[in-house]
Design a protein around this nucleic acid. Structure first.
Lengths: 153, 153
DNA sequence: CTCTTAACTTGATTGATTCAAGAAAAGCGC
DNA sequence: GCGCTTTTCTTGAATCAATCAAGTTAAGAG
């Protein structure tokens, strides 16, 4: 949880003006990993009740362009944002509840960058989305041997 | 390009009723790899001008559930569909023009399934999205050495 | 040929995201 | 500190993929 001063420095280093909405959005993204835009808007309004949704959209776009936050788009979900940038990490999405967790690269160095047939494309990045069950949902579906109720999967 | 009879068999094998809209959608997906829903609707209407968009949505969902087609959601794009199913292949998306191509697994067997820290998730699939430049856009941006104009990347 | 059920049509609705125009305020130089 | 310029924010509307709902049609079983 960086301090306000640290947030201000982050903004200034990125050559972005320091404003209340921006500080609040930055804090919201740091405090809520993988939050969607709407959650961020609500979190921001906890501090600044009158911030417009448009401002948050604008700020998130500015942050993404500046590399301050990362914009991810898990299949079946709306846009989400995270503060962890600069490393090559991926995500796992729970099929059942949609929970998202960070996953470091399996192999130390960019793992899947070597495609077998790249069709002449110049590949510079590989993003991996793992699918599976989060601990809670996995426990639920495997331990719920009693067929009394449909386990929501 | 499978024949109509082959399409019919595909449908029957999947325990789906054979209808004109379904045959047309199936053909559209086979003929237009990675087409988005709207393109499919337009293609289908080339054969059957009065098909409703809702029918196409319904059919695509039924096909996806039955495993006849695969539903993909490249970041920054609407839903797309492809007929290549059953193998573990991935996609490369051009940053510049959005073109999509298939990419076989780098390593023969599910390449990135071994995450270093899975947070207790039970991982059963890994989908890789490669980002880069398609041959056309790569040529454009690298051969344009003259700095007269901003190369759009 | 009839019946049942799945599929399709029509029309409205949702909801994330974007667009547009004007008002506010950040940070510059003075 | 003070005004100026530019960016940022507010307000309000629009877009568009996707979904929902209710009624009609037609596929396939018997």
């Amino acid at each position: 949880m960086p301090s306000t001063v640290e947030y201000e420095n982050l903004l200034r280093d990125a050559e972005l003006r320091v404003t209340q909405p921006r500080l609040a959005v930055l804090d919201a993204v740091y405090e809520n990993p993988h939050a969607d835009t709407n959650s961020i808007i609500e979190t921001v309004r906890g501090d600044l009740p009158d911030v417009s949704h448009q401002a948050v959209y604008d700020v998130l776009k500015a942050f993404t362009d500046a590399g301050l936050v990362r914009h991810i788009q898990p299949p079946g979900s709306v846009a989400r944002y995270e503060s962890r940038v600069g490393d090559n990490h991926h995500h796992i999405v729970c099929r059942s509840c949609g929970a998202i967790a960070d996953v470091d690269c399996a192999v130390g160095h960019a793992p899947c960058l070597s495609a077998s047939n790249d069709h002449g494309f110049v590949i510079d990045e590989a993003e991996v989305v793992y699918r599976g069950l989060c601990p809670a949902c996995a426990t639920e579906s495997s331990s719920a041997q009693s067929p009394r109720k449909e386990s929501r999967v």
